[in-house]
Amino acid sequence: MAQSSMTVKKKKRRINAVSIPTEIVINIIMILFCLLCVVPFIFVIIISFTSEESIAQIGYSFIPQGWSLDAYKYAFEMGYSLWRSYFNSFFITVVGTVLSVLVCILYSYALFRRDFKYRRFFTFFSFFTMLFGGGLVPTYIVCKQLLGLSDNYAAVIVPLMVNPFNIIVMRTFFQSSVPEELIEAAAIDGSGEYNTLFKIIIPISKPGIATIGLLNALAYWNEWYTPMLYIRDKIHIPLQYLLMQLQRNMEYLAKNSAAMGADAIKAASEMPTQSLRMVLVVLVVVPIACAYPFFQRYIVAGLTIGSVKG
């Protein structure tokens, strides 16, 4: 049914679509904003192809004086460690996203249920942790010494698994898209709680779930701080941390150069170049940008997704 209505819309404008001038204005605003968003990335790509001499001469520029592939060559010569960290990032993101979405759905669905006896308690229980935490040292102790999260994939996945913000957002999605009559009806039909959730609620909550999934995937993909704390070997390093390592090495030497003196200058002169850092940014961004449309399929389905008919 959805398909047939789609084909109709392609020929004719939707009945209640905005007027054509309005839509043009909307498009212009969108295009301008999108340019603002994309140009910096193009800028990054340009820097990644800029020769070192040009950066030394005129700094970062949209029109460099010279081009070079050296940084890419250098990056690909990193070989194993680069590909390994690529794999790690993928693995961590996929497994982490699946697990965290699952936990988030379960938790927020219970919070969504008005007839859940401890609803308010558990809402507060998760929300409270959004504000208060024990700080770095105690969290580190619990993760490392108590849970053994050190030098393994779990060390990157577990610390990010639950996010109170996502739980509350997911609960709000349920509130705004799932009619409670549906749950009642299912209960009357004798459907168990898990059955109702997985067979009835989840299929109609796809936009919300896809959104939470996307946010989780992004969080996992972008994470570098957790691996910095818990990963000391070279086998489990994700890509984003590999990038941050270079960045932080530079910053550290800059910060301490006055105290370190000759040592810092010598060490800094062995650091990778500016353009290499941009190459790594490109390598980090491209895969996740490619994965984005996958989630988007569910999010921007727009009005074409029929909601539940009571």
Binding site: V95, L99, S150, D151, Y153, A154, R232, K234, I235
Partner: peptide, 28 residues
């Protein structure tokens, strides 16, 4: 099954640790 997957993650990676190099400090 989900829990086992998480368990496996930790388990599996610590075995790779011990077999890989001496640098990987297997704290557990």
């Amino acid at each position: 099954a989900a829990m086992m997957v998480t368990g496996l993650l930790t388990g599996c990676s610590s075995t790779t640790d011990t077999t890989s190099s001496s640098s990987s400090s297997d704290d557990t």
